[in-house]
Design a protein around this nucleic acid. Structure first.
Length: 828
DNA sequence: TTCATAAGCCCCGGA
DNA sequence: GGCTTATGAA
């Protein structure tokens, strides 16, 4: 009989040395709280009976949470609404498993949705069990765990364990090459689109042979399947994986090697999955392979999810996975967590009322005991345009700041990342600290990608994509023709391009000039590869960037970004110090999108609604609640009703991030693709309950949400939008608009007014507001000149790089280039 | 081959 | 409006 306990291996990290069942093994780490490692029902019964021996970490849990923590044997599904202590349950459950001696940290497989969540969970478990846990090697995202598995067993799927991981950019470039190689018009059949199709298939767990015929036909006159196969073949020769492969290869590996799967069945005694509602089919298959044990072996799998927070349908997530759970794992215990500990009743009420508009929910009802007459209702505000929106949010934040609210407790959650910029601009002007989470990622920057390509090619000489990226960066006189010749040569002989280059410089196929350059490239890389094992990796990295001429390239670059790029390269090298080797570092960079942010700094967070899942803030700002943006038009077009419902869940996620205050904004005019368009308030606003929502008086704008006239805008009568907004007058007005204060809009009626302004541009140059122009002081001579040394209270010292009216572009020594108003700086 | 300018696309969300 | 890619001249 196996009670799920008696065959824990003696050695912590040694799956091969699985001891025979039944024998008595020395006990794992001494359990906290004194209960002996009896395992199973007995231990639970004892724990329940003997209140004095309840470990500290269990006290303070409500009955449902506690049940979720203590139901260790057999499958468990926890349906946890927003703010019901889901993370707490997961971490406590892990702590409980460890403390009760049922498993070592290395025997717990815990899948989280983001690296950040994994990190947090590790910390919290550490706190609970008193820091005695030596890490949790198998806690991470599906992808990072997939990498780990693949590195160990790469040869089983035809890879070498040094394989590289391609990001989206790499994939698109590769697909493009394949499309072109096949003589297909890549305009008519864009690589990006096909890359997305591949991603979609992989999310469903489909290889080239398995995709539906219709899908295969729908691209490039029926060449879809062929191209997909060619793509996979190419990845193999490159010894590379895309994100989807990180799931698919392990699945294939497990299926074709039952003995290996068995090994992991024995290893992972407990499996936990966070955000289960967001798993896609491939992840589900992966999980099922690991979780479904042979008959008689307990399936200790615990999935935690919330169908109302399923927001990754576009990535192939199947909410149905939740519904199927009980079928897949017969006898599963289902526990609902409905007591909300996070938000006020107004916020909760608003969110509940909104989400009730969705059909096909599992149906949870969140409740809270907290009722405080002083709690604010959810506030809805209207603004004229996105700039005013940013300005008003900024004012609100400053107001809160004056009342001693830390900025760290506030967040702006946007639907689409382009909305962030407006807030950033505004906050820079205000000198308000902010941090963008999941924004333009460090490693996506040009210089970082170039540097990484060098490193990749040194570690992985078969990485042709890296080769093509840097072979002529810095300029070495190696243009398209040369690269294409190399490419052909390599393909013909089926060898990597770097190897091909090494061959070709021995021949006289190349003209003397490129031949010399290529020879230099090859010898550089050979030298670096020789240093790989002997030289410390940070030192090697510096050597590479120096010797390749890459740093010189930026040093000689006169553009304003160049110093910043050099700084980023230094930062890159610094961040390598935390890793053991260059390979280890490259691994990290491929999978971890987020750079560690400075937690010390008090700053407002700006992020997308998607990346806000799982977080909470005292005050949340939700801008951009307009039709077309939120719900997003594309979601409606592509997803129909279910698309709309996913958008609604996204709104629900947004609302439920707020603990005490929630401000929603919508604007009447927004610029999309550089074109101003008038917009309608989001339908989601109408779905909020009056009892919990307050429409703030539109004292400074015309949103008109509360005047029954929204949708009407001054633009409606103005015929050719595009013309008006492409006039120089408008553009200049835009450029100088940051200076506009609320007064510009303050004393208006809601009536459409159109003014003629900006005389010098001629009569057609109509602008929105004459005062605005008058205020911008563009003609006033600035008291500063380019090159002046100035001081800014937030950004420190810097040099003026440019002047536009009263706006200065300044290269700050520490903060990089910013645009600020001249009133905020002084000469030093 | 490289640089400058024009054209075109885009901006939904992420590991 | 801003970024990337295509085009053409030096």
């Amino acid at each position: 009989m196996s009670n799920g306990f008696d065959d824990i291996p003696f050695f912590d990290e040694e799956p091969a040395a699985r001891p025979a069942r039944g024998g008595h093994q020395p006990a794992p780490p001494a359990p906290a709280g004194g209960s002996t490692a009896l395992g199973g029902i007995a231990a639970r019964a004892m724990a329940a009976r003997d209140q004095h021996r309840v470990p500290d970490y269990l006290s303070g849990l409500n009955p449902e949470q506690r049940e979720a923590v203590e139901s260790l044997d057999g499958p468990v599904l926890v349906l946890a609404g927003a703010g019901t202590g889901k993370t707490r349950v997961l971490t406590t459950r892990i702590a409980h498993i460890l403390a009760s001696g049922r498993a070592f940290p290395s025997q717990i497989l815990a899948v989280t949705f983001t690296n950040k969540a994994a990190r947090e969970m590790k910390e919290r478990v550490g706190v609970l069990v008193g820091g005695a846990v030596e890490g949790m090697p198998w806690m991470g995202t599906f992808h990072s765990i997939g990498v780990k598995l693949l590195r160990r067993h790469a040869e089983l799927v035809g890879l070498k364990s040094s394989f590289t991981i391609l990001d989206t950019d790499d994939v698109v470039r590769l697909v493009k090459q394949l499309i072109q190689a096949d003589g297909i018009d890549d305009k008519r059949w864009p690589a990006k689109q096909f890359a997305q199709m591949i991603d979609g298939w992989k999310n469903k767990g489909l290889g080239p042979a398995e995709i539906p015929e219709g899908d295969a036909r729908s691209f490039a006159n029926g060449k879809g399947r062929e191209l997909y196969a060619a793509y996979q073949a190419r990845l193999m020769t490159l010894n590379a994986c895309d994100f989807g492969d990180l799931l698919l290869h392990p699945i294939r590996m497990f299926r074709t090697n039952p003995d290996v799967l068995r090994e992991y069945h024995d290893k992972f005694r407990y499996i936990l999955v966070d955000e289960y509602q967001d798993t896609n089919t491939a992840q589900y298959m992966w999980l099922r392979l690991l979780a479904q044990r042979p008959k008689g072996v307990p399936q200790n799998v615990c999935c935690v999810g919330d169908d109302d927070q399923s927001i990754y349908g576009w990535r192939g997530a199947e909410v149905d996975n939740i519904l199927r759970f009980e079928k897949d794992f017969p006898g599963a215990k289902v526990i609902k967590l409905e007591r909300n500990y996070r938000s006020t009743e107004h916020i909760l009420g608003a969110a509940a009322h909104l989400i009730a508009h969705n059909e096909g929910r599992l149906g949870k009802t969140l409740f809270t005991d907290r009722t405080d007459p002083n709690d604010d209702k959810v506030q809805v505000h209207a603004a004229w345009d996105s700039e005013e929106e940013a300005r008003a949010v900024g004012e609100e934040i400053e107001q809160l700041q004056r009342n001693q609210h830390p900025l760290n407790n506030m967040a702006i959650l946007v639907r689409a990342s382009f909305q962030m910029r407006e807030f950033e601009d505004r906050f820079v002007t205000l000198g308000l600290n902010y941090r963008v989470i999941g924004g333009p990622r460090f490693y996506e920057r040009l210089e970082i990608r170039d540097a990484l390509a060098y490193f990749r090619l040194v570690c992985q000489p078969a990485d042709d994509l890296a080769f093509e990226r840097i072979v002529n960066t810095p300029k070495r006189g190696l243009g398209d023709t040369t690269v294409r010749a190399l490419h052909d040569y390599a393909r013909k002989r089926d060898i990597p391009m770097l190897a091909a280059t090494a061959d070709i410089v021995e021949t006289d196929e190349m003209k003397p000039k490129p031949r010399k350059s290529l020879f230099d490239v090859v010898s550089m890389f050979q030298r670096w590869q020789g240093l790989l094992e002997t030289t410390p990796h940070t030192e090697l990295a510096e050597t590479i960037l120096e010797e390749s001429g890459y740093t010189d390239m930026w040093k000689n670059d006169k553009s304003a970004e160049a110093p910043g790029r050099l700084e980023n390269l230094k930062e890159l090298i610094r961040s390598m110090e935390a890793f053991e080797s260059m390979r280890g570092f490259l691994e990290h960079i491929a999978l971890v999108m987020d750079v560690e942010q400075n937690a010390e700094l008090d700053a407002v967070s700006i992020m997308t609604l998607h990346s806000a899942k799982g977080l909470e803030f005292e005050t949340v700002f939700l801008p951009g609640w307009e039709e077309g943006l939120f719900p997003h038009q594309r979601a409606l077009d592509e997803g129909g009703r279910s698309g709309l419902e996913e958008e609604r869940r996204l709104a629900y996620v947004g609302l439920t991030r707020a603990k005490r205050r929630c401000h929603i904004w919508f604007v009447s005019n927004r610029r999309i693709h550089g074109l101003w368009q008038s917009t309608l308030p989001s339908r989601f606003l109408d779905e909020l309950p009056v009892t919990h929502v307050e429409v703030s008086e539109a004292d400074q704008s015309y949103g008109g949400y509360n005047r029954g006239g929204y949708g009407q805008s001054r633009f409606d009568k103005q015929e050719p939008f595009a013309n008006t907004y492409s006039t120089p007058g408008w553009k200049r007005a835009q450029a100088n608009k940051t200076d506009a204060t609320r007064d510009n809009w303050g004393n208006r009626s809601g009536v459409s007014i159109e003014r003629i302004g900006y005389g010098e541009s001629g009569p057609k140059a109509r602008t929105i507001d004459g005062e605005l122009i008058a205020k911008s002081r563009i003609d006033e001579p600035s008291k500063f000149t380019v090159g002046d040394r100035v001081f800014h209270i937030k950004f420190g010292n810097g040099n003026i790089a440019g002047i536009e009216g009263n706006k200065l572009t300044i290269d700050f020594d520490r903060a990089g280039q910013k645009r600020v108003l001249d009133g905020f700086v002084e000469k030093v």
